[in-house]
Simulated assay, not measured.
Amino acid sequence: MTVAGALAADRLGTRPRSLTFLAEVVRRGGTGYAVTLPEPLPTPEQTALAATWLEAVNSNPAQGPEYDEAVARWLENVALVVAARRKARAGTPD
């Protein structure tokens, strides 16, 4: 799931720090709050992707602080994979 999320986010040009910020929103406000954000990520395409993720996780009946923390960690891991992909591409000759 993490790699698939990172590939989708990277294809849309999502910056890792945007995902990390969204993770903090989830951690502090919960998935219920995050799903109500009109623009959880900078561009409309990125927002649509994040909305899909947030709606999916918000539909889980087993929500609570531990669940929100797990979602936040997942978003942070997606950000790490995106950052690693970008670093690898930067080091690769054209």
Rank of each mutant, 00 (worst) to 15 (best):
N77E: 15
A88M: 08
A9N: 02
V71G: 04
R27G: 11
R86G: 11
A9L: 05
G91A: 15
E66Y: 15
A72K: 13
T2E: 07
A62E: 09
L19F: 01
A88H: 10
A56M: 02
A51N: 06
E39Q: 13
A83M: 09
V57E: 07
T52C: 04
A83E: 13
L54Y: 01
P16H: 13
P44W: 06
L80P: 00
T52Q: 08
V25P: 08
D68M: 12
G5Q: 14
A6M: 01
W53E: 10
L75V: 10
G91Q: 04
L75G: 02
L49F: 04
T31F: 10
L80H: 11
A88D: 09
E69S: 13
G13Y: 04
P16Y: 14
A50R: 08
A51C: 12
R17Y: 11
D10W: 12
Y67M: 06
A34T: 08
L75C: 12
V81I: 06
L75S: 03
E45Y: 07
A72G: 06
A6D: 06
E55A: 12
L49M: 09
M1K: 14
N77I: 03
A34I: 05
P16F: 06
K87N: 09
D94A: 00
L19H: 06
V81A: 08
G64C: 13
A50N: 07
L19E: 08
E24A: 06
L49R: 02
T43Y: 02
A4H: 15
Y33L: 07
V82P: 03
A8I: 13
R86F: 10
R85Y: 07
D10I: 11
P65H: 03
R15W: 11
A9P: 00
L41P: 05
T2K: 11
G29D: 02
Y33V: 08
Y33R: 03
V78L: 12
P61M: 15
L54E: 09
L19P: 09
K87C: 09
G30D: 15
A34K: 00
Y33H: 04
L7A: 13
E76M: 00
R86N: 08
L7R: 15
T36I: 14
G13M: 08
L54V: 13
A79P: 00
A9K: 01
T43D: 05
V82A: 05
E55S: 07
W74L: 09
G5D: 12
A90Y: 07
S18G: 14
P61D: 03
P42R: 04
T52V: 14
N58A: 14
G30K: 00
S59W: 02
E45C: 02
A9T: 08
A84I: 11
R89C: 07
L7E: 00
D10S: 03
T2M: 12
E39S: 13
R28N: 04
A48M: 08
E55P: 08
G91N: 02
A23K: 02
Q46T: 00
A72I: 02
Q46C: 00
V78S: 13
R28M: 12
A8H: 12
Y33M: 00
T31I: 12
V26M: 05
A79N: 10
P42E: 05
T52A: 10
P40F: 06
Q46G: 03
A56Y: 03
P44D: 08
A72P: 01
P61N: 00
V25M: 11
A51T: 10
V3Y: 15
L49V: 01
Y33N: 01
P38S: 05
D68N: 15
G64Q: 09
V26E: 06
